[in-house]
Design a binder for these strands. Structure first.
Lengths: 230, 230
DNA sequence: GACGTTTTAGACAATGGTGTCTAATTTTAC
DNA sequence: GTAAAATTAGACACCATTGTCTAAAACGTC
C-alpha cells in the first residue's frame, strides 16, 4: 500500500527534465512489452531493461505493475483518440473527385489509426485484458470508437445533403464504411502483419468503390427525378 | 523431459471411456481458462479445478502446459472450421428472395461462427498468442479464414452467373460481404458482449441491403440495356 | 565544491506457478 | 474377486516474479 512516492519529494521544476525522459522511456517500453506479452506475461524486469532503466526506477515512477499498466493504456488511448480525430478532420468536405478523396481518406484512416502501433496495441489489449479492466477501456470505447461512428455519420450526412451521396441511415453507413475499409486488411491485422502502402491503397479503393456503388445518388443528370428522397 | 506417459500403457479400448470423458473435461475447462486469462495468466491448478480433476491427471494426459495449450487450440480450430464449412454449405443456391435468404445466411454465419464461444476464443488467442506460436495458428489461417474467402467467392460467382448479382471481383466481394456482416457487431465482439438475436438480424439486414445495392444487377426488365457488363 | 534528488545494482522475503514424485484410493476389465 | 490401470491428495524442489530495502553512485543546481 505505502510507497516511497507517498512522501511527496519537493522536486525542483528543472529536475523534471531527466525524470520526464525516464517516464516516457518507461511508458514506451512498457507499451511494447505489454503488447508483446500481455499483462501477465510481461515482467517489470523486461520493461526496465527495454527502457534502459533500473527496476527500482520503474517502481519509483509507477508504484506497481497494475498502475503502470493503466498508465500505459491511458497514454496509448489518448494518443490514439487524438490521431483518430485529427484524421477525421481531414474528411473531404468539398471533394473534387469524391471517390478519389474518400479513398485517400480511407488510406489515412487505416494508416494512422488502424495499422499503426497504437491501433495494434489497443486491439490486442482490449480483447485480452478488457474483461479484467472493465472501466479502463470503457472510457476509450465511449470517446474513441463510440464517437467515431457518430462523427463519421455527421460528415457523411453533409455529403448527403450536398447530393453527393444518398444515405438513409447515416450511422449504419458510417459503420459500413469503416468495415469496408477493413475488409481487405483484417487478415493482416489479425496476424500482426503490417500491410504495405500498396495494399492499403488497394483496400481503400475496393472499399470506396463498393461504398459508392451502394450509396451513390441515382445518375440524375437533368431529366430523371430522384427515385427516393430520404 | 521424461513423463509418466513415456512408458506407453497398454490400455484396453474399453478403458478409454472414463479417460475420454476426463480428457474432454480438461480440454473444455482449459479452453475456458485460456480464453479468460490468456496463456501466461492461466494456471494448471485453475484448469484442473474447473475440470473437476486433480492436477496430476492434467499432467498425465498432456505432459506440459504448452502441450495442453496446443491441444486446446487445435481442438477449437477443428470445431470452428467444421462449423464454418457446415454453415457455408447452407448458402442460398436457388434463392426465392435473394435478400431474405442472404440475410438469413448472414445471421447463421454470425451466430454459428463469429459470436459463439469458439469464435471468441480464436479471435482472442490468435491475437494475443499468435506471435508466440506462429505455426500453430498458421494451419488455421490457411484452412479457415483463408479458405472461407475463396469458398464464399465461388458461391457468389454462381449467383453472379445466374444473373442474380453483378460482381466483377468475387474475392473482394466475398471479403466485403463478411466485413459488412461484422460492421454492426464489431463493437460488441470487441468487448465480449454477445449480441441478441434481434441485433444479429438487424446487422444482417443492414449488411445485405448495402451489399445488394452495391452488387445488384441493373434492373433490366426488358428494355433498359445493362449500363456495364463486367 | 556542496547539497538534495534521482538513479542504480544488488540483496532480500514472499508469493505463486510448474512439473515431479509417492503412496493411497478408486475405477475398470476380465 | 482380482489385477492392472487411472486417479487423487499432498508434499516437494525449482524457478520466476513482485515489491521492498539499502548503500553507493550519478546528476543537476546553486
Amino acid at each position: 500500500m505505502k510507497s516511497p512516492n507517498d512522501t511527496v519529494p519537493k522536486m525542483s521544476v528543472h529536475s523534471q527534465r531527466g525524470q520526464c525522459a525516464k517516464r516516457l522511456s518507461i511508458l514506451e517500453a512498457a507499451a511494447e512489452v505489454f503488447c508483446r506479452q500481455g499483462f501477465a506475461g510481461a515482467s517489470i524486469d523486461e520493461i526496465a531493461s527495454e527502457a534502459c532503466v533500473s527496476r527500482q526506477t520503474v517502481y519509483n515512477h509507477y508504484r506497481e505493475k497494475d498502475n503502470l499498466f493503466m498508465a500505459v493504456v491511458e497514454d496509448v488511448m489518448d494518443r490514439a483518440n487524438a490521431m483518430l480525430f485529427s484524421t477525421l478532420s481531414s474528411f473531404p468536405e468539398n471533394p473534387e473527385s469524391l471517390e478519389d478523396d474518400l479513398a485517400a481518406f480511407a488510406v489515412r484512416l487505416s494508416h494512422n489509426c488502424i495499422c499503426n502501433q497504437d491501433g495494434k496495441f489497443l486491439r490486442k489489449l482490449v480483447l485480452s485484458e478488457g474483461e479484467r479492466y472493465p472501466h479502463l477501456f470503457e472510457s476509450w470505447r465511449q470517446h474513441g470508437p463510440g464517437k467515431i461512428g457518430t462523427a463519421l455519420a455527421a460528415l457523411l450526412s453533409r455529403l448527403s445533403r450536398k447530393g453527393l451521396l444518398q444515405i438513409d441511415d447515416f450511422d449504419v453507413a458510417a459503420r459500413q464504411f469503416l468495415a469496408l475499409v477493413n475488409a481487405d486488411l483484417q487478415m493482416s491485422t489479425l496476424f500482426g502483419v503490417t500491410p504495405t502502402q500498396a495494399e492499403l491503397e488497394s483496400a481503400a479503393r475496393n472499399a470506396v468503390r463498393t461504398f459508392m456503388r451502394a450509396y451513390a445518388p441515382p445518375p440524375a443528370q437533368t431529366n430523371a427525378p430522384a427515385l427516393r428522397t430520404a
